[in-house]
């Protein structure tokens, strides 16, 4: 087996193991949440008999280890159980929410990733001159301001004053793609501002690092212009750290946008999770936790795989 295949297999196995461990943590964590599920479903009017019946029905009386494996095997087969509050099938309810979250994350990434990399390249090209300082200043300012505040400011300026885009990012199945993009324009803008700085700075740093190598000097001496040097010689060698930070930010776009979803009334997974946490709907919380963990681990795994594959020493072993 070539070492690169072995490395990849190891990396994937490690991710699966990590996911398994996290599933234990999620399950144990939701078990120790304060408040009794049966009590919170039945409310103040609960009689002791009704509580006992419901506990038996929910299987809360079984030993935790048994419940954990029942839950895990269900989850592997795509059965996440039913929500305690509404009795709905969780997989079904989550699917549309998860799809919405991915939709927003995808379009935010489509805008943010190329923009960040482009700005990073520009910053390198004009290193220590005013374009570099302007780009760094603006992106660092936007990452330092809390995202809900950027949301409110954009909402006030763009939606209330200029009326270019709606402040409520409500999307539904009857809308065509253009209408949906129009609706989510503001959240995309906020998310872009939030993730831009991190990716841009990393691109800049990685490429500057490479730029000090001898082969770059050679390329310059060959007479290539600055952009060609960056694009043809520096960028391919800086790809691993850049992909790493891009993946981290993509993961953030999926799992970290609860605040943005609430501010812009976007029907994604964040709001769904928060509502169910406050109602102690444990199966839903577990399902959301598992999905978020899977996304996070998956994207990080992809980042590592890209890093492995983009490393010539690993691709072409002696």
């Amino acid at each position: 087996m070539s070492p690169v295949v072995k490395l990849l297999a190891q990396r994937i196995a490690l991710s699966l193991l990590l996911l398994l461990l996290i599933s234990v943590v999620i399950f144990a964590g939701t078990m120790v949440l304060p408040g009794d599920v049966a009590q919170s479903i039945l409310g103040q009017s609960a009689t002791p008999e009704a509580l006992a019946n419901l506990r038996a029905e929910l299987g809360v009386n079984d030993p935790p280890v048994q419940r954990y494996f029942a839950w895990l095997f269900g989850a592997i087969q795509g059965d996440l159980g039913t929500a305690l509050t509404s009795g709905q099938d969780i997989s079904e309810a989550l699917a549309s929410r998860f799809w919405n979250t991915l939709f927003l994350a995808f379009w935010a990434a489509v805008v943010a990733v190329p923009l960040a990399i482009f700005l990073g390249l520009v910053a390198v090209r004009f290193k220590d001159r005013w374009p570099d300082k302007l780009i760094s200043g603006v992106t660092l300012a936007s990452i330092s301001i809390p995202e809900f505040l950027i949301g409110y400011v954009l909402m006030y300026l763009v939606a209330v004053k200029l009326r270019w885009f709606p402040s409520v990012a409500m999307i539904n199945d009857n809308m065509n793609l253009f209408e949906k993009l129009n609706a989510i324009a503001l959240p995309i803008a906020v998310l872009t501002l939030v993730v831009l700085a991190h990716m841009m700075r990393m691109t800049r740093a990685a490429i500057l690092n490479v730029m000090q190598s001898a082969y770059i000097e050679t390329a310059e001496l060959k007479g290539l212009n600055a952009f060609q040097v960056i694009y043809r010689h520096a960028f391919p060698n800086a790809i691993a750290p850049i992909v790493n930070v891009v993946m981290l930010n993509l993961a953030y776009l999926v799992v970290g946008v609860v605040v943005i979803e609430v501010v812009f009334v976007y029907p994604g997974m964040g709001q769904y999770l928060v509502d169910h946490v406050s109602k102690r709907d444990v199966p839903v919380v577990q399902a959301c936790g598992l999905i978020f963990a899977a996304v996070y681990i998956g994207l990080n795994m992809i980042a590592d795989i890209v890093a492995i594959l983009s490393n010539p020493r690993l691709r072409h072993p002696k």
Partner: peptide, 19 residues
């Protein structure tokens, strides 16, 4: 009926004519 739980977002939706 649109559910807008955030106070600022609700007022902005009214001001921008979305509701």
């Amino acid at each position: 009926i649109i559910v807008i739980n955030d106070d600022t977002a609700r007022v902005a939706a009214l001001q921008s004519g979305q509701v």
